[in-house]
Each structure stands twice: as C-alpha cells, then as structure tokens.
Design a protein around this nucleic acid. Structure first.
Lengths: 331, 331
DNA sequence: GACGATCTGGCAAACGTTCGCATCGTCCGG
DNA sequence: CCGGACGATGCGAACGTTTGCCAGATCGTC
C-alpha cells in the first residue's frame, strides 16, 4: 500500500506538504505541488479514506435513504443523485428502508456518522428520523418540514395543468384517487387540485381515497370512480392509474372513451401502457441532482448558493389516456 | 462523542476489554462482558467506523455495482442484497455504473479499498474491472468467469421449460429475439434454446438479434419475427417483449392469437401488460441475497460454506401472452 | 502445597491521515 | 539596511480503534 510517506519521499518533501498539495492545492507553491502530484500519480497513490475520515471528521460522502429501490420513482431519484455525486467528486451511499419507518430511522442513524449529509427521500417517519441524524445536514426530497431544506415538485402547478387539460377536453366532473393518508405529496396534490378547481370555477372535484400507492390501490378505486359519475380521473401516481385502467377494462369500460385518466410521476410504465398514459412528469433525476447539490454547495462558491427550498417544475405529458368525454355525458 | 474510553471508565475496565467484549464476545468473561455491553448501551456508544477500518483493515461493508439502478431487474437484485446485508449486519454500498464500462471499472477501484468484497452485477467490462479490485473478494452476478465465484440463473433449464411449454401448445417454429451481442446471459439463453430444440427434436428455432435490451429493441425485432413465420417467440427480456407486442399491435397482429410471446426476467412490467406476459422468472432478490452470503460466509461456519457457483432456478410463469397457434399455421 | 495450564484483562503500539504550530526564507516599506 | 509581515514547508500530535504481548489470577492435578 502506497502512503503519503512514500509520496513524500519520492517528491522530496514532507508528508504535510503531500497532504496539502492533494487536498488544498492552493496552499502549496506550484512547482512543489506539481512534483507531489507527479509522484503520487507515478506511485499510484490512493489516499486511505478511513484514515482521512478519522482524522478530518468528514467523509466526502453523502447518504441517500429511499423507501423502496424497486419503485421506479425512487430508482430514478437515486440515479440522478448518483450521477451528480460522481460529478461533484463525492461518494453516495444508497440505502433502502423497505417502506419501514423503523428501518428508515435505523438506516439514518447508521449512515449519519459516516457521511457529511443525508438525503431523505419521501420519509415515512420524519420526526424520529430527523432526530436520528443528530444535527447532520439533511435535505428532504418530496417532503417538507419547516426549517429543513427540501427539494419538491410543484404539485400545485401540475394539478392546475392537469385540470386545465381536462376542462379543455370538456370534462366537468373530475375525480382524484388519493394516495396514502400520511403522504405529504398526497396532501399537496389534493390542495393543488382544490385550488385549481376553485380557480377554474366550472370543474367539479370528487376526492377519493386514501388508497395504497400501488396497482392494487387502483383496482380498489376503480369502482368508486365509476360510481362517482366523474368523466375523468387524476391518480396519485402511475401505478394506481395502471390498476385503475385494468379494473375498468374488466368492467367493460374503455379508456379514454368512457373515462379519461391522468397519472402522476411519469414512471416509465406510463408509456408502456395501452393506451399510453397521460401523466404529470417531474424530472426525478433532477430531484436527485438538486438534493446532492444542496449538500455539497460550499460557501466558497457564493452567488449560486442554492435557496432554502428547491421547487422543480411539473410538466403535463399528454398521451393516449385522455380524450373528450362521450357526448352523452355532457350536460 | 462517546468512545471506548468512556465505556471503559463506566464499566470499570480497560479499553481493550471493551473492544473485545464488543467485537469478540467469547474472549471475555460473561460478567465483564455484560457490564461492558450495559455501559455501552447506557452511554449510547457507537463505534467509530473509520477508526475501526483504519486499524483493523476490514470495513464490515460490501460494494454492489450495477449497470443501471433504474432497470427493475437490477433494482430487484439491489434490494435483495440490501436486505441480506442488513440481516448479516454488514453495510452495502450500491453504485450505478450507468452502463458504462469505464465508469464500472472506476467505481470498483474506488469501492474496493473501502469494502471487504464486491458484488459485480452483469459487468460490462469484466477483465478490466476484475483487475481494478486488486485481489479483493468478488462475486459475479449474472455473469461467469472461470475461477471466480458467481451467482447465475439456470437459463438453460428456463429455456427448456419455455420451449416445452410452447411445443405443448402446438408451436413448431419458435423465434428468439436476442439481447446485446456481448451479453453473457444472451449467450447462455441462445445455448439453452439450441440445446432444448435439439433435445425436443420437433421444434424449429430461428435466432434473431442482437438487439438492444430495451423496449426499442422489441420494436426493431417485431417485423423480423413476423417475417420469420414463427408462431411463437422468446425474447431476451421483458422489456423487449413489451416493445415487440407494441409493434405487433401496430401491425394489426394479436398476441397471443397470431403470435405467442414469452419474456424473460419477470420484471414487474410483465404482469401490467395487456395481455399479461408469460415469462421466465428468476428470484432476483435471491440473487442479491446469495451474492451477499457468498461474501460474508466465514470459514468458521464450516459445512454450509457455499459452493463455488450458485445456480438459481428459473420458473416458467404462464400468463396471457401464450396460446396455441392459429389452426391455419399448423402444418 | 506447588506447579503448570488456561483464561482474563491491561498496556501500548500501531493504522494513515490532517492540521495547529513553529520555522525559515523572502519581500517590501520605511 | 533593518524590521515586520507573509508565504511556504516541516514537525509532531492527535483521531478512535484493534491486537500482540504479557502479567496476574484461577483452577486442576500430582
């Protein structure tokens, strides 16, 4: 194993100089620095992370906790975060909490001591989990708690856009199939829809749920939607939309003929579906990227210091699952 | 921060005893051990990982490198590995190489020094990457190189099962839509299909490809399949099957009426599809689990020391995309 | 009752890095 | 030409843990 000592000897300097030349280049004269870096490269020196963490107290790594890696929604966020972390030259440890609040807290308390910051994605037990990180920097993704920096999608704007789209098609009664009761984003979406309905004035809103944020949730909701006599529906996420469409088909109803469906997230199942799903897209990779940036942003690079809250735009992607209502349904 | 010193003082022993009591409990007398663990719990002692890694040289953590976290196939493996790692009490660092051979090698050389072993999932540049880990223990998942331990699915058996199923339905000409040219598993699947066709005798095999292992690959393959006049098709993975079905629908062909389709992997899109996809399922979480176990298996627990190669079973899941061929197509 | 085997627990030296402090040389203003 | 200031580099002490070695204690056996 090559250590600073070897590099120092090769470059004819002391180990302190080696350390400085590599971690804080501007603190050492250019010729010396070059000699050191050359020697380091030649010897194939790789700093021992453990030693540096031990001494310096920072690890140069971030932690990312997601509820479920198998969920394409979180996978996309993780991917974005990974890419950005790589770009920024920091490590990223991804941990899956398995949708379990307890495991989430545990994961954080295990991760916190060995990282410089934690990205907490759609936390299932914010209070306890935030406690567990004992003051370490944190960024919340897809969640918000006063006083903590967060990265969220502009659900309100998205909902407005969805409702405008449906109204333009001629729909006057729209159902919302909600997600989990304690979900922060479900709350935002409901609020956004209500505000949008108020603003538009001539669209009636029917709120359903809570439902599980999976295909099964869509199955469960389908019959309620039909009974509500709404001609269009917005779902908590794309998986729910998938389940909804499946169940409607079983009941002999056509999408978008009998019912228009708008999903959320643009998980990649959305475009695989028949018909392909009209949905609200957030750039999830950007969420991951932004979260990483919030944590690595140094005061040195002033000016572009990120604001306390990042809100990412939401875009309506119109595909095949929305259409004008059947004439019979029109008033 | 609570250190061994604090615990030692509280328990009235020396720091060596604390260290031993916690890391190698049987080397210290039961009463002492209890006093130490009690003190540790009371003070909320958490060993400093960096210090322990630095001194002991092992990190108690494994690394997992996958080509693409957003691919449900790899996400499932990652999830299984995470779960097992948690159970075994070791850490797991997941890194996404973005399908880039270079990044893969880089990831490994960054990960290797700070882990006790690496799980390499469907590597895109095995030789160079294996080189990069400088002798550190490794397990290959979904790939095989002589001399290295690996966890693979029994593609041959799976292909035999698929072909038997199709023959039983009455198909006599079956196409295979292959994956990437340099893919190890594509090779296994082709070989398995050939062997199965030989063995069954009365099924003709048409090999197509290589194709990209995504939906687009299926699009590209669809017309070739039709032209081949095969009445059934096996695809490299489920995403290809999805693309295939989409394109067939565009051409006015019905699945399974005009063509039966068998996918591979049972990625969760398989059951969302209309018709739901008949596919070959491997328990991907088990792959992740098995890989972790290969690396944490200590010589101490002899007897159940894992064999050099783990081959996981492949199961045929019959859903709606396979049916007997149209009578007209029969000889 | 003594001797050896066995076990328990303490001492102190690492592991490789970072960083406060000291030192030395150099440059500039007076 | 001198004093002060500053920039560059070296010295050495941490960081918190593990572990080889050794001393003392305990027990069984002759």
């Amino acid at each position: 194993m090559v250590t600073v000592h070897d590099v120092a000897r090769a470059a004819g300097v002391s180990i302190s100089t080696v350390s400085r030349a590599l971690t804080d280049p501007q603190r050492v004269a250019a010729p010396t620095r070059d000699r050191v870096t050359a020697a380091a490269r030649e010897l194939g020196y790789r700093p021992n992370r453990a030693a540096s963490v031990l001494r310096a107290g920072r690890s140069g790594a971030l932690g990312l906790v997601v509820p479920d890696l198998a969920n394409p929604y979180f996978a996309a966020i993780a991917k974005g975060a990974q890419a950005q972390a790589r770009e920024r030259g920091v490590g990223l440890f991804v941990v899956d909490s398995d949708e379990d609040p307890e495991l989430e807290t545990e994961a954080v308390s295990g991760l916190a001591p060995q990282t410089d910051g934690i990205i907490l994605c759609s936390p299932r037990a914010v209070e306890r989990t935030v406690e567990a990180l004992e003051g370490r920097p944190v960024v919340l993704v897809n969640h918000h708690v006063d006083g903590l920096p967060s990265v969220v999608a502009d659900h309100e704007a998205g909902m407005l856009r969805a409702l405008e789209h449906l109204r333009a098609l001629g729909h006057a009664k729209v159902a919302y199939v909600g997600g989990p009761a304690r979900s922060w984003s479900d709350g935002r979406r409901r609020a956004g829809l209500r505000a949008a309905a108020d603003r538009l004035g001539d669209v009636e809103l029917v709120e359903l749920g809570p439902h599980r944020p999976q295909v099964a949730g869509g199955h469960a909701a389908a019959d309620l939607v039909v009974a509500s006599r709404a001609t269009a529906v917005v779902t908590f996420n794309d998986l729910v939309a998938v389940g909804l469409v499946e169940r409607l088909r079983v009941r002999g109803l056509d999408v978008p003929g009998d019912l228009s469906v708008v999903g959320c997230d643009d998980a990649y199942v959305a475009e695989l579906l028949a018909p392909p799903l009209t949905t609200l897209r957030t750039d999830l990779r950007d969420s991951g990227r932004a979260a990483v940036d919030r944590l690595v942003a140094r005061p040195g690079k002033d000016g572009d210091a990120p604001r306390d809250d990042v809100t990412l735009p939401v875009e309506l992607v119109v595909r095949g699952s929305t259409a004008p209502p059947r004439p019979a349904d029109r008033p």
